[in-house]
Design a protein around this nucleic acid. Structure first.
Length: 826
RNA sequence: GGGCAAGUGGUGGAAUGGCAUACACGUUGGACUUAAAAUCCAAUGACCGUAAGGUCGUGUGGGUUCGACUCCCACCUUGCCCACCA
């Protein structure tokens, strides 16, 4: 049989069916075996797999198959992140049921995954919109609620005043609603939050444990958590007559600059702004600015180089360290949700304060001076001086370094009771409410006093209703069957919570559910979870470096805290695969530059596609798709096919190493060198060089000519063929499975043991030594492998060519790197 | 502004202190063929040279070393992430 696409399609179908029928990839929880858990980030059911998915899953599949052959008990599951906005949008546009829409797309994608030969354990399949899955979202929410990690707070949302609905950020286009075109407003409504900040320190500290995560992902998480040490300072607030009317706290990381405070500035959202402006001359202006800022999106407000705007509030504050009275301002450059929402402004030593002070003619006074220079003149400064320096104009602290002053001043303020050292995080609590239909209903109801109460466990899941209307506000509120909760004991009706959960909630723990996916009675069995966790290898896109991974780490830590599991970190090793590009651009539907994996499978088969994807670039790098280069993958597989089909002979005698001639020995050595290299490359995710190594072996075998009647040489050839099939099986599983069977095996190649190299096969009697003169390559010498430095030196210096370069000059050094190279320094 | 990657032939890439450009794509020439496809063989960094051979060469400039794509310092460029975070 020839290696044609027609035959390939037949055998790929045949083996996919065989693997499924014989449940080759089903994972059993078995504590007597060492486990390996491989996981890819489960996809959103968008409708079709794209090359990015194919690359992701190919990498995972190779890891899973390789580890199985190495004897590990491998868990390799798949599912869908199937709640989310696109299904709801489609429902609104086409009047289609989100459930039907989603199920259809899931089915299509599962069929595609199967056609790629991915070795998933389909018995553990899960998807988020399954009530058997999302009931556990609800259960987790209630556990968190009971632990005090869930609370309600007013928060701003995007509000479409025409459609009367909340919009997600991606539904706001240029400040307008995506359907109505109406100007989007900010509206304050009560929403549910999860107190992830309670775990901020743990989430930050434990990043150190993650030795096998990319540095940049850890850096992103660290920045996102954004821990900073500083001082909270309490100010007395005074009216225009100098009478104390209130108090105010600010947070600073630069307590060394407190003697240079010239004004205090509040975020427009700060509740005190309205209060203090009341009755002032510019009260109307202040109120207008607050309203204007509320309308602006964060993107507009935080635009680069945007001019800072502010207004004086007509009240004052007394600086506790020097008694100086400074004005209070309100400005749009201050953020309400960082620190205390109020900032002590030091124009001389903070660039933002400097620009603001210049614009509004506020004074600038220097308290830190550059080391060894004349005192800075505020009149002549072109920008703030933000570097460390020497303290000036700062009372008892004059003369010491500003770095030292940070500690000294905060200690002093603490002892005086004017300030307190504080730790602040950039990380905020997680807003999980969505006024959306296609998500997990938040399992709460409101009692007669309007207080939220959890739905009892035995009433879970709170199922999504079908009788809803879109486009009239929060969809669940339009459902008559859903709106009210009836207490089964008393028959009393209560109003239900009608918000659903952020879909990031679903994806924060699915990896735990896979360990016991069919469990009807509990979220998962702890023994199963403790056996399989952590995920040994997690693979996905860099776009999830922050939120998904942080939430998952948080959930794992939460589960540990309530005794459900023992794992501290969910993902032991993380691989972020690079994007797939076409002509240097990311493939995307909108650009029209997509390559459809189905087309490639039809034309080349999935084995060729897998070989190409792995060969073209290392997994973490971007991959440039090349229609021509995939021919190379096809050619390589053809050569392996022909080797086995045409040159393998089942009637060869037992291989006898003692009968080898020089050429045999070399081939035998190449096989074992390849086993060693390919194994290492698989372990280090270097599939491109693993494939290149196998190509090199194929090149050597093709050149290996021999007398057909020589039995031992035929045995050697059979030996090569078998080993290539084993090494290639994780990458091109269908073809290797087929050929494995054809050469007479009655067990699956997938069930075979991974080959081990023999040290004695790698030994060489003669080696080639590179000889350099002054670091330049001047010759190669074939010498016995055990040659000594002196012997080598004698051989090399006797050589005529080398003598041309050494030419009677004094030899200052003779460096010999055993087995590799010699350098003569003259 | 801060952080993290990366920069090597016509192209994807290999080499992480020791032969720069493995392997593959592409290109060119050849074999086979009536022809084409497929397959096979050979060449393929630049410059000088008939050749043997030589010189240069891994973003730029310096340094360490017998020896640097690899390590160190400075810079340039590109990409990604974060960012009026006090």
């Amino acid at each position: 049989m020839a290696y044609t696409i027609h035959e390939i399609k037949k055998l790929e179908d045949k083996w996919q069916a065989y693997w499924a029928d014989h449940k080759i990839f089903a994972a059993e929880t078995d504590s007597s075996r060492k486990k390996y858990y491989v996981l890819e980030m489960y996809p959103y059911p968008s409708g079709k797999l794209h090359m990015g998915h194919v690359r992701n899953y190919t990498i995972g599949d190779v890891i899973a198959r390789f580890r199985r052959m190495q004897g590990y008990n491998v868990l390799y599951p798949m599912g869908f992140d199937s709640f989310g906005l696109p299904a709801e949008n489609a429902a609104i546009k086409n009047n289609e049921s989100p459930r039907k829409w989603t199920d259809q797309r899931m089915n299509d994608m599962v069929a595609q995954m199967k056609s790629l030969g991915l070795s998933y354990d389909w018995s553990r399949f899960l998807y988020s919109h399954d009530p058997e899955y999302y009931r556990w979202n609800q259960w987790i929410f209630i556990q968190m609620y009971k632990q005090g990690l869930v609370y309600k707070k007013k928060s701003l949302v995007n509000w479409d005043p025409v459609d009367n609905t909340v919009l997600a950020n991606e539904q706001v286009i240029d400040g307008k609603g995506w359907r109505s075109g109406a100007e989007v407003e900010k509206k304050e409504i009560e929403q549910w939050f999860i107190k992830i900040t309670a775990f901020a320190d743990e989430l930050l500290e434990d990043l150190q444990q993650l030795d096998h995560w990319p540095e940049r992902v850890k850096a992103m998480q660290k920045n996102w958590i954004g821990k900073s040490h500083g001082t909270t300072i309490r100010f007395e607030v005074l009216d225009a007559d100098g009478q104390k009317i209130d108090e105010l706290e600010t947070f600073t990381t630069r307590p060394d600059t407190v003697f240079g405070i010239e004004y205090i500035v509040l975020a427009p959202e700060h509740p005190k702004c309205k209060e203090w402006a009341q009755g002032q001359d510019n009260e109307q202006e202040v109120l207008t600015m607050i309203a204007d800022v509320a309308k602006e999106s964060m993107i507009e407000r935080m635009g680069e180089n945007r001019e800072k705007n502010g207004l004086p509030l007509g009240v004052y504050a007394r600086n506790p360290v020097n008694g100086k009275v400074v004005p209070l301002w309100m400005a749009d450059y201050v953020l309400m949700d960082y620190g205390t929402g109020a900032v002590m402004a030091v124009p001389a030593h903070d660039q933002r304060d400097y620009l603001f002070a210049k614009k509004y003619n506020l004074p600038v006074s220097v308290v830190i001076n550059p080391e060894g220079q004349d005192e800075l003149n505020p009149e002549q400064m072109a920008e703030a001086f933000v570097e460390p320096g020497v303290m000036v104009n700062s009372g008892d602290f004059n003369g010491i370094s500003s770095t030292e002053a940070i500690t000294k001043i905060s200690e002093w303020m603490e002892s005086e009771g004017t300030g307190q050292r504080t730790v602040t995080y950039r990380l905020k609590d997680w807003l999980i409410s969505r006024q959306r239909y296609w998500g997990t209903p938040i399992p709460m109801y409101y009692d007669d006093d309007g207080n939220p109460q959890p739905i009892p466990d035995d009433q879970l899941p709170v199922q999504l209703p079908d009788d809803i209307e879109f486009g009239r506000g929060n969809p669940l509120e339009t459902s008559e069957t859903f709106k009210y909760y009836t207490d089964p004991a008393t028959g009393k009706k209560y109003r239900r919570e009608t918000d659903t959960m952020d879909t990031f909630f679903d994806s924060s723990w699915y990896y735990l559910r896979y360990t016991d996916a069919q469990n009807k009675n509990e979220i998962f069995n702890s023994t199963a979870a403790n056996y399989w966790m952590p995920v040994d290898q997690y693979i996905g896109g860099i776009e999830h470096a922050i939120l998904h991974l942080l939430y998952s780490r948080f959930f794992t830590k939460f589960f540990k805290s309530i005794g459900l599991i023992q794992t501290e970190e969910p993902f032991h090793r993380l691989l972020t695969q690079g994007m797939v590009l076409l002509h240097g651009e990311v493939m995307s539907k909108s650009k029209g530059n997509v390559v459809d994996p189905d087309d490639i499978v039809r034309k080349y088969g999935s084995d060729s596609m897998r070989v190409f994807i792995l060969f073209a670039a290392p997994p973490e790098d971007q991959l440039e798709w090349n229609d021509q280069a995939i021919d190379g993958a096809w050619k390589f597989l053809t050569r392996v096919w022909n080797l086995v089909e045409k040159r393998y002979k089942p009637d060869a005698p037992e291989l006898d190493v003692s009968q080898f001639d020089k050429a045999d020995k070399e081939i035998y050595r190449s096989i074992h060198a390849s086993i060693k290299k390919v194994t290492e490359d698989y372990q280090n995710y270097k599939y491109n060089t693993a494939i290149s190594c196998m190509m090199i072996l194929m090149n050597a075998v093709d050149k290996y000519k021999f007398d057909k009647s020589a039995g031992n040489k035929q045995a050697l050839l059979n030996y090569v063929a078998e080993h290539i099939l084993l090494l290639l099986a994780p990458i091109a599983p269908h073809m290797c499975e087929e050929l494995w069977q054809r050469i007479g095996h009655d067990t699956c190649v997938m069930k075979s043991e991974w080959p081990e190299y023999k040290d004695e096969a790698l030994k060489q009697d003669e080696i080639q030594i590179i000889v350099q003169v002054n670091g330049k390559l001047r010759g190669r010498f074939d010498v016995p492998a055990d040659i000594s430095k002196d012997e080598l030196q004698a051989v090399v210096l006797a050589d005529e060519k080398i003598q041309n370069f050494v030419g009677g000059k004094e030899i200052r050094k003779f460096i010999y790197v055993p087995g590799k190279l010699a350098n003569i320094v003259v």
